[in-house]
Computed example of a mutant assay.
Amino acid sequence: MINTRKKLITYLRKRDGIKPSLQATLVNIRCKLPDVVIFGGMVRDFGLGVRHFSSDIDMVTTASAEQIRHALAGLNPVMNKFGGFRFRENGRLFDIWSLQDTWAIREGHAQAKYLSDLCRTTFFNLDAVIFDVHALKVRARHGYDEDLQRRVLDINLEANPNPRQMAIRAVRMAIQKDLQLAPALVEYVLEQLYGTSLNLTYQSYVRQLHDHTGRTPESAFRFEPQLKIW
Rank of each mutant, 00 (worst) to 15 (best):
R5E: 13
L8F: 02
L8E: 01
T10S: 15
R13W: 04
P20L: 13
S21Q: 08
L22F: 04
L26I: 04
N28E: 14
I29L: 02
K32N: 06
V36T: 15
V37R: 00
F46L: 09
F46W: 10
F46Y: 04
G49D: 04
V50M: 12
H52T: 05
S55A: 14
D58P: 02
M59I: 15
T62W: 05
S64V: 03
A65V: 07
H70R: 04
A73I: 07
G74Q: 01
L75S: 09
R86L: 08
F87H: 11
R88G: 11
N90R: 04
G91V: 13
G91C: 09
L93I: 15
F94V: 04
D95M: 13
L99V: 03
L99T: 02
L99I: 03
R106P: 00
G108V: 05
A112R: 00
L115D: 00
L115C: 03
C119W: 02
T121V: 12
V129T: 12
R141N: 10
E158M: 13
E158I: 11
N162W: 10
P163W: 01
Q165F: 03
Q165V: 09
I168P: 02
R169P: 00
A170P: 05
M173W: 00
D178W: 06
V186N: 13
E187N: 15
E191T: 10
Q192C: 13
L193Q: 00
L193A: 14
Y194Q: 09
Y194E: 12
G195A: 08
G195L: 04
Y202W: 14
Y205C: 15
Q208D: 08
H212L: 12
G214I: 02
T216I: 02
A220H: 06
F221T: 03
P225T: 14
P225L: 08
W230M: 15
